[in-house]
Amino acid sequence: MPSNEEVFEKVREALVDALAVDDAEVTPEATMVGDLGAESIDFLDIVYRLEKAFNISISRGELFPDDILTNAEYVSDGRVTASGLAQLKNRMPFADLSKFEQNPLVQDFGNLLTVQDLCNYVQTKLV
């Protein structure tokens, strides 16, 4: 089982290759979209690199459960409802949703994930 530092280094390498960013930009608190400039197609690339780097399999919707955000049951007036938030927390135990919870606009969800969330996710897959 790799240490947290080893996981971070491999995640950083995957992000540097996929997003053409500098090593120094990839900090634990950096957000994937806002800080590192990831676009939707980049996540396909990132997922592939993480699968290869850690020899894991990442199913669609596991890392980014966007099906919740397109489900009318969990979204109202562009905001994720309380039951939607509960679903997100259940599906994304690796992510810190505390900030998003304060103003859960669907449009802001894309900028939720941080590098640390990604590392946490990988750790859950390695257990």
Binding site: S40, I41, L44, D45, V47, Y48, E51, R60
Partner: peptide, 9 residues
């Protein structure tokens, strides 16, 4: 190398 519904590598 990899295929998903959204695309491929």
């Amino acid at each position: 190398l990899s295929q998903q519904p959204d695309g491929a590598i």
